[in-house]
Simulated scan of single mutants.
Amino acid sequence: MTNNETGHSDTLAAEKVTVHVTRLEMVSPSSVAVPVPAGIRLAIMLAENMPLHLYRYLYEVIGKPHHWMLRRTQSDEVVSSIIKAEETRILLLYVDGCPAGFAEMHLNLPESVDMHYFGLVPDYQGRGLAKFFFAEVLAAAWSHNPQKLWLETNTLDSPRALQLYQRMGFSPVSTAEEVITLWK
């Protein structure tokens, strides 16, 4: 369907599925040391004043296989106001000069940092980059001195996501069922 209000076009499948959502928290910085992957030129940068088209591209290429839904249903004006908000931080992972992943977090200080999105472009998955990038994202989140970090994952995310989050120090605090509209 085309959203005439935003000019952004995407296809939403009519099919809906129920997913199991796990909410996790981390109450102290991780002690897990993650080495920099060898043989790859890497950079992690804070995206300041991120262009909407780049955000939408990364959100789709990373989120579509996992059926991320919130930002695809929001207007350009809403998404732009969120990604440019003072409390939003977006970190970009570059591999050999190319955008390879992103993480979006929202500072609800001093209480928490909410980790909203984390993922890698499919071309860069399976290279050992996720654990390294996630460790760097966590360090950036903890640099704001929150009391805790929050995140959610569901059964449509990578099958290794929940394991990674728990290995890095997150603990499940609640679960729920949610209906997701599949993205085709």
Score class of each variant (00 low, 15 high):
Asp123Lys: 06
His106Gln: 13
Pro35Ser: 04
Tyr59Gly: 04
Ser31Glu: 02
Pro110Gln: 00
Val27Gly: 04
Asn3Pro: 03
Leu138His: 09
Arg72Glu: 14
Lys148Asp: 08
Arg167Ile: 08
Tyr117Met: 09
Lys184Val: 07
Met45Tyr: 01
Gly119Pro: 02
Gln74Tyr: 14
Pro29Asp: 11
Trp150Ser: 10
Asn145Lys: 13
Ala161Gly: 11
Arg89Phe: 09
Phe118Arg: 09
Tyr94Asp: 03
Lys16Trp: 11
Pro159Val: 15
Ala33Arg: 03
Leu162Trp: 02
Ser174Glu: 09
Glu60Ala: 02
Phe132Arg: 03
Thr175Val: 11
Lys64Ala: 10
Trp68Glu: 09
Lys84Glu: 12
Ile90Pro: 13
Val137Lys: 01
Leu138Ala: 01
Pro37Gly: 07
Thr2Pro: 01
Val137Thr: 05
His66Tyr: 15
Glu48Val: 07
Gly119Lys: 06
Glu87Ala: 10
Ile62Tyr: 13
Ala141Ser: 07
Val78Lys: 07
Pro51Lys: 08
Met115Thr: 14
Ala47Gly: 02
Val21Ile: 15
Thr22Lys: 15
Ser80Asp: 09
Met168Leu: 05
Tyr117Trp: 06
Val27Arg: 10
His144Glu: 10
Met168Ala: 08
Tyr59Ala: 00
Tyr57Leu: 00
Lys131Tyr: 10
Pro146Met: 04
Asp76Thr: 15
Tyr57Ser: 01
His116Asp: 11
Met50Leu: 07
Gly128Ala: 00
Ser174His: 06
Leu138Met: 09
Gln125Lys: 02
Leu156Asn: 15
Ile62Gly: 10
Ile44Gln: 02
Arg89Asp: 12
Phe118Asn: 08
Leu138Cys: 07
Asp76Ala: 13
Ala135Met: 01
Cys98Met: 07
Pro159Gly: 15
Met26Tyr: 15
Asp114Arg: 10
Gly7Leu: 02
Ser31Tyr: 04
Arg41Asp: 15
Tyr55Gly: 04
Cys98Tyr: 06
Ser158Gln: 15
Pro172Tyr: 14
Tyr55Arg: 01
Gly39Ile: 06
Leu149Asn: 10
Gly119Met: 06
Asp114His: 13
Met168Asn: 03
Glu77Gly: 09
Ile83Tyr: 00
Arg41Gln: 13
Gly97Met: 00
Trp68Phe: 13
Gly119Trp: 00
Leu54Met: 09
Leu42Asp: 06
